[in-house]
Write a protein that binds this DNA or RNA. Sequence first.
DNA 1: CTGAAAGCGCTAACAG
DNA 2: CTGTTAGCGCTTTCAG
Lengths: 331, 331
Amino acid sequence: MPTIKEVSELAGVSQATVSRVMNGSDRVTEATKRRVMDAMKTLGYHPKAAAQSLASNRTNSIGMVVSELQGPFYGPMMAGVEEVMRKAHKHLIIAAGHGEEHTEREAIEFLINRQVDGLILLVERLDDDYLLALNERVPLFLINHHIQGLHDRTIWLDNELGGYRATRYLIDQGHERIACITGQMWKQDAQERLQGYQRAMAEAGIEVRDEWIVNSYFELEGGIEAFHTLMERDTGCTAVLACNDELAFGVLEAADDAGIKLPEQLSVMGFDNVLTARYVQPKLTTMNFPMYEMAQASARMVMTAVYEKQQTEEAVFEPTLVERQSVRSLR
Amino acid sequence: MPTIKEVSELAGVSQATVSRVMNGSDRVTEATKRRVMDAMKTLGYHPKAAAQSLASNRTNSIGMVVSELQGPFYGPMMAGVEEVMRKAHKHLIIAAGHGEEHTEREAIEFLINRQVDGLILLVERLDDDYLLALNERVPLFLINHHIQGLHDRTIWLDNELGGYRATRYLIDQGHERIACITGQMWKQDAQERLQGYQRAMAEAGIEVRDEWIVNSYFELEGGIEAFHTLMERDTGCTAVLACNDELAFGVLEAADDAGIKLPEQLSVMGFDNVLTARYVQPKLTTMNFPMYEMAQASARMVMTAVYEKQQTEEAVFEPTLVERQSVRSLR
DNA sequence: CTGAAAGCGCTAACAG
DNA sequence: CTGTTAGCGCTTTCAG
């Protein structure tokens, strides 16, 4: 492994100069720059990340913490981040929270000890005070998590708008009695999606009856249970907004078991557009969650904030309708 | 950020001693060890990874290259690796190949420049010579990829056995005319699964007719196309082994579109047991691919080979049957 | 069992 | 525009 010293000798310059051309920072003559570059090439030189970090106090790596690596959500997320990071020659170190607050904090500490230059967080269970304190130690970037004072470091999906658009679509298809199955209400996105539903209904002048809303949790089983309570309540709803696809899948399954034909007897609308949505029967109409794009945006935000030291501003993404076959038009 | 120097001063020992207790290597008196530990704790000391790397020529990080981050496959894989790595206080740096040989090599070079201590590869398109050469530069660990001379660094799924068991199950259910939809035949696993099918059929004394085998590719569309060619060939098969779940989903969809009832008119068997398999209609009977466990195994292999300098041996995993509803018994 | 000292390979003032 | 000079924080001989 050649070192900077060898390069400098072969190029007939000082190590400092070599360092300069690598970092492109200071002004160097085209001529010497060329000489150095050639020397690097013939030696097959690659700077040693550890040495750079130690000297510069920058690791050129950023950490990413996700609640869990499983699930349909995180692949695209990681892929998006990884892509832009690598193009910029930065390293992505990942850690998973495995679903618990305790392990999420552990994952974060782990990455901070690694002295990452920045931290992208896609987590749910951490409280704001902790995160704010954390931000003093390392620049934080938050995906889908709002915190007072960190707006310009936030990438989020407008869930309220998504809930609104989804509901609006159902209404436009002629539905009036529309049920809504929510996720865990301590989750910000669950709340917001419900709010969007309520706004759309209010706007359409439809009075939402309490029995139309069933509180559940973002899992297949949650969808199944919710479907049953909906049946028991005998609401007469013709459509249901499941606040994420998983819930919708549960509804699909439960409906099928109950011998209810979809979408003929009940229209189902999902939210997230996970991969599986295209595979189920009927193919799920849902709101698209542009995870890949949001991930790229978060990585770009890191680049400009951390490495270019420039101000950033929050990035908002909008869910868009993906029309498939689980919603029937009443018109 | 406290340094080793401060710790040593507070503990009244030399830096060397502190280093020793951290690495647990040399013998140190219990007494001084305790003093050092206390000092570390009161200072909230954490060693700086970059400095350690530079001095020890070990980065305590291993790289992982996957063909693509998307898809149902890699989440569990990463989760498994990450879990055991983090427990051992090692770092996981990931890079994606994004499906092309060119970018896969790039990803690998990227990680090598990062001086990772080892490299876990879950890739398909790289040729053996390249990988063997690579192994001279950094210890390689291969998931589902066989290479002469790297057996003891390989973690693999017995695809042939999986194909055999799947087919065997179909036969046991009373099927005789069993079609097989393969993946891209340049993929090792596609070949092996087919071989397993053939072995089971031969063993059962069933002569496989050429028209029962349709060469396709591991995607939903591949399954749809394969289903249609199967229909055109009018084989009279009562069951079909789709060599991965994606293919099976394609068959499900195409069959549904063609008005063919599953599993009444055709039994479908998948392979991989991706998350989605539980969501489709009928729920897919398939062979389980223990990705999470295999990932953990690969990480453990890295630990013992790289950090404990001990010999390892290949780890083989067996696919097991997951019985759901897409296969009908003829008995 | 412990300390002293010499780097690991690079960056970052500070001069010139 | 370029060279000189200190380190960055840790590990690792080599003595003792």
